[in-house]
Design a protein around this nucleic acid. Structure first.
Lengths: 184, 184
DNA sequence: CTATTATATGTAAAATGAGACATAAGATCA
DNA sequence: TGATCTTATGTCTCATTTTACATATAATAG
């Protein structure tokens, strides 16, 4: 039971999901490939943290839909009572930023322009997501889902994503404004 | 030559540093232990990306001070011309946030209170650092070091750290305000 | 008709990273 | 004098993560 396995349990605490869906959904919080998820789910099934049933689909291949067990819920509760380890960010752009004076401003501009677009795309996706949440659970302006509402977690996480995205966009734009025109 | 090794070169592009110092300084951008750094520096030395000289110290143990070579500078320039890979964030608190309705609000409050203090400490450290930079290179209000100034990279990175820290503090405070008093 | 894409699950090997073990000089503190 | 802390470098093992290999169904595009 490493952090990734708790992450999978956390996602399953909302609703049953296939390994494929789990792989997609865990990306924003704890990036992992399916090659890591599938064997881990097998282990967790042996350990009775989860169960699965095979679901046949007419239009797509069959899938294994995993559900969290009571033992899994207990594991989650214990895990929540332990302090969360510090976040780990690895960003190649930060390493590059440190030595950009070595190259022409045009190179640097490309790097930050690409990153800016990356964040703008993310922002759009997050804004759509929060719009859908607000629609389905009709919240008033500034209102937050109730603490016991299963949507509480998703809602605060989406807000974090939105806030971080906007901050990063602001930073990229500021950096771009500080990069001189070429022929320096 | 993986990302970490380029990161080390990037740090060395400003000034020669020991493996020990490199380990400390790379933490904010690309966390790594000395057990990863020392062998990598040996490799890079064999590959002529860096050189070192042993420096005796009177008050502390001897150290190996590494410098970037011309070949290393070339490597950095090539690396800067390639697009930067997407940032990777792994945050246990985000995984936990998703399932907090499973436990009492007091548990959740502790998690976010700890994280808030973590970010406040970071903010203080970053604010001191930027104050020192502004002192030594006497910049006017809102002024940014010149693009070719070796401090340019450090300055924009510190600003990113400050902005992200403040956003995260704001988020933690907002989440704490949305967690109800106990006996729910 | 074929190629590609999305969905879906899996294994194996290689790279990366974390934690522990090991040593050692000099400083500080009790 | 002994204990601990900081600086300093190194190895080894184990866990984690990535990349590549592998297969299969169904839809879509050319």
């Amino acid at each position: 039971m490493n952090t990734l396995s708790y992450g999978l349990l956390s996602l399953l605490s909302h609703s049953p999901l296939s390994g494929y869906d789990l792989t997609l959904r865990i990306q924003p919080f704890w990036p992992a490939k399916h090659s890591q998820i599938y064997p881990l789910l097998s282990q967790m099934e042996k350990d009775e943290q989860v169960t699965f049933e095979t679901v046949a689909q007419s239009d797509k291949p069959d899938k294994k839909v995993y559900s969290i067990t009571d033992k899994g819920i207990d594991s989650l509760r214990e895990w929540l009572s332990e302090p969360a380890s510090a976040p780990v960010l690895r960003d190649e752009l930060m390493l590059k930023a440190y030595c950009v004076p070595l190259v022409d401003p045009s190179i640097t501009r490309d790097l930050f322009q690409s990153r800016l677009e990356y964040y703008r795309n993310n922002l759009q996706r997050y804004e759509e997501k929060i719009r859908k949440i607000k629609e389905t659970s009709d919240l008033d302006e500034g209102e937050v889902p109730a603490y016991r509402d299963p949507l509480f977690g998703a809602y605060i996480l989406l807000n974090k994503a939105l806030m971080s995205c906007r901050t990063n966009i602001e930073w990229c734009e500021w950096v771009l404004s500080a990069i001189p025109q070429d022929h320096t």
